[in-house]
């Protein structure tokens, strides 16, 4: 593909200086170490603490547009007054984002734009610039099995993109906004090609095409029950997923009993209470049914309308599943199970 903007080169030593330069333009949000073996996106205060070479973050950047917990509005308990919470555009530079996490943001944009547009999300979503970084797939990533452009070095949609090479990064400029971010930070041009993509270790056999096919007849598969047996129903897989967006709404009344807040909290369809309705009926009480629903939301219900996978292959739900269940294993088993049926 022809480059519109020239490729430039940045050494590892340049990175903190560059981040300081970006900070002068706008807040920078980037991955940091969190705990012993994990990473999280956070606002940069010390550029030296930013980690660009990471496997995945616990939560995706979704949390900046759809906070895990937020106050929708405050009210007086006599019903006379409500005050909406102030929601502001994020206005930030997201640095060090993996391809699948940006894809996930585009999926959420679709969800929150279609039907009744969701103003809190859409307001926060404004003013975001994205700087991507390539990554080395680990045992859980499988983006190229589900995304059209799922390669770890796919830069589409980003403003700038960092390709990791041996002694630094190649910086690809993709948009004018990206070019503007580089004003005042000159870098040497790089005469050569973008390095080849890294290969994945986890694969869905037959890719998304096969997935679409199998999900048209996977409803009664015994595979659901075989995985549900191991599942403890903790909901982790929902809560870490960059494209899950379901929430619960509760009122909290202050101790004066005169005022209160309506709080929205992220929820998940793997949780038993998720499908509890008035009267206490739980219509998706079996874990197998809940697991099936979660995967149908990723691979069928929305996908059949849009033609795209709603799972972006980040591998979070597998990597963080407390019971050690891998979504790739579930899907591959569904595929093999349906092949067997067809063969029989």
């Amino acid at each position: 593909m022809k480059q519109i903007f020239p490729l430039t080169f940045m050494t590892h030593n340049d990175i903190p200086h560059w981040i300081s330069h970006l900070q002068k333009i706008e807040n920078v949000i980037a991955p940091h170490k969190n705990g012993i073996n994990s990473f999280s996106f956070g606002k940069v205060s010390d550029p030296k603490c930013v980690i660009l070479n990471y496997d995945r973050t616990l939560s995706s950047i979704k949390k900046y547009f759809l906070p895990p917990k937020e106050t929708l509005f405050s009210f007086s308990t006599d019903g006379k007054e409500t005050t909406s919470s102030k929601v502001e555009p994020i206005n930030a530079i997201f640095l060090g984002v993996h391809n699948y996490d940006l894809e996930a943001v585009f999926r959420l944009d679709h969800n929150f734009l279609s039907g009744h547009a969701e103003s809190q999300y859409l307001t926060r979503r404004q003013g975001a610039l994205f700087i991507g970084v390539s990554y080395t797939p680990d045992e859980w990533h499988f983006s190229n099995s589900v995304l059209k452009d799922g390669e770890p070095n796919h830069s589409g949609g980003f403003d700038l993109f960092l390709h990791e090479i041996e002694d630094g990064y190649l910086l690809e400029t993709l948009t004018e906004s990206g070019q503007n971010l580089m004003k005042g930070f000159p870098l040497p041009e790089f005469d050569g090609d973008i390095p080849k993509q890294q290969s994945f270790n986890a694969h869905i056999d037959g890719g998304f095409e096969k997935v679409t096919d199998v999900f048209s007849r996977a409803w009664d598969s015994p595979v659901w029950e075989s995985y549900a047996e191991k599942c403890v129903g903790c909901g982790t897989c929902n809560l870490v997923c960059p494209t899950c967006f379901c929430f619960n709404v509760e009122d909290e009344v202050d101790l004066d009993l005169k005022t209160g807040n309506r709080i929205r909290t992220q929820d998940g369809c793997m949780l038993r209470s998720f499908s509890e309705v008035a009267g206490g009926e739980i219509f998706r009480n079996q874990k197998a049914a809940r697991m099936r629903h979660r995967l149908y939301r990723k691979f069928k219900y929305i996908s059949q309308e849009t033609g795209e996978s709603w799972c972006v292959g980040c591998g979070r739900c597998s990597a963080y599943c407390t019971a050690g269940i891998s979504i790739v294993d579930i899907v591959n088993d569904l595929i093999h199970d349906s092949n067997r049926e067809i063969g029989a």
């Binding site: 705990g35 994990s38 895990p68 403890v232 129903g233 909901g235 982790t236 949780l271 407390t322």
Partner: peptide, 24 residues
Amino acid sequence: PIKPTHAVCVECKLNENECVYDKG
């Protein structure tokens, strides 16, 4: 009153804690 029925994992994820199991 609303009785919490979800597991502690949910709150741990909302707080973006590293999983205790990943700490060994």
